Simulated assay, not measured.
Amino acid sequence: MKKIVITGGTRGLGRGLARALLEQGHQVMVCGTGQAGVAAVTNEVGVPALVADATDRAQVQALWDEAVRRFGRVDIWINNAGVSHHRVPLWRLPEPEARTVAEVNLLGVLNGCAVAAAGMAARGGGHIWNMEGLGSDGRVVPGLGVYGATKRAVTYLTRALAKEAPDGVTAGLLSPGMVVTDLLTYGDSEAARGRASEIFAILADPVDTVAPWLARRVVTRAKNGARTGRLVRLPPKEAARVGGEVTVGW
């Protein structure tokens, strides 16, 4: 049985992972930024949850401390908290929205890595997983430049952590592929939303499909420098509808 913490675990893939890991017999604690979401995941999924903002190092530390108080240790820490933004060129993206994406997706992961690495080093070790996403491989999608830049940075940060982490602490990357959550961005025009909906219907998997698959690997592939994720290749007929073969994940 592993003791696992998931940031951003009150909705979407984080919530799905919490449920799947719990069903596999592990002890799980999550956090979210709203009291309503924290209460809901506790009551409906059955995992302890704490209100914590990943962009605040002190709140992340409080999450660690509470998990250790409950479980005695933390074996695996998953930096899952993330947000997206409206699909517009970066020069049209409002500064507050750009700042939120940068802070949650990068500073939040940095905080989680720092707190978990220090805490694990003091307690004999553990593994840190960070979530990749669109942009992690350098692929550029117009209108999602800020989001993609943060995910590219997370990949670099994780590789650096894998090389510099203290003894006993390891780090790796999770690439869930395209998942049907509120992070999917459809665009502002009716035509763009229609095209995106068609593509997502082919490419994106529901949380209930992805989470159990990923949860098994969170535990079994927790090795330094590990990178694990879903690979989706479209059949030729479906690929033609979206302009050729498309690969999602790794």
Results as ranks from 00 to 15, higher is better:
Val45Ile: 09
Tyr147Ser: 03
Val60Cys: 08
Gly46Asp: 02
Ala201Ile: 14
Thr220Arg: 15
Thr228Gly: 14
Val45Gln: 01
Val38Cys: 05
Thr185Ala: 04
Val74Cys: 01
Glu97Gly: 04
Pro166Val: 04
Gly119Tyr: 15
Thr170Gly: 12
Arg11Trp: 06
Ala239Gln: 07
Gln61Ala: 13
Glu132Leu: 10
Ala36Val: 10
Thr10Ile: 12
Leu134Asp: 08
Val5Met: 04
His85Cys: 14
Gly244Trp: 14
Val88Phe: 00
Ala117Glu: 05
Arg230Ala: 11
Ala171Trp: 03
Cys113Ser: 00
Asp188Trp: 00
Gly135Arg: 02
Ala160Val: 15
Val115Asn: 08
Ala49Thr: 01
Leu107Cys: 05
Gly225Pro: 09
Pro94Cys: 12
Tyr186Phe: 11
Pro89Lys: 01
Leu157Tyr: 05
Thr228Glu: 15
Arg73Tyr: 01
Gly112Pro: 06
Gly37Leu: 10
Arg87Ser: 03
Leu184Thr: 05
Lys163Pro: 01
Val45Pro: 01
Val207Trp: 05
Thr100Ser: 09
Val30Ala: 10
Lys163Glu: 14
Ala201Met: 11
Arg216Tyr: 06
Thr10Cys: 08
Gln59Ala: 15
Val83Ala: 09
Gly148Trp: 00
Gly225Asn: 12
Leu214Val: 11
Leu161Thr: 00
Ala39Asp: 14
Thr42Ala: 12
Ala165Glu: 04
Arg159Val: 03
Val232Tyr: 08
Thr33Glu: 05
Ile6His: 11
Asn111Ala: 02
Arg15Asp: 09
Asn79Cys: 06
Thr7Lys: 10
Ala226Asn: 13
Arg230Asn: 10
Ser175Phe: 03
Arg227Val: 12
Asn43Met: 00
Glu103Leu: 15
His127Ala: 07
Ala67Arg: 12
Ala117Asp: 02
Gly244Leu: 15
Ala222Arg: 03
Gly37Ser: 09
Ala20Pro: 00
Gly37Ile: 06
Ala102Phe: 06
Leu231Gln: 09
Gly12Ile: 07
Asn130Thr: 14
Leu90Val: 02
Ala192Tyr: 01
Arg217Val: 13
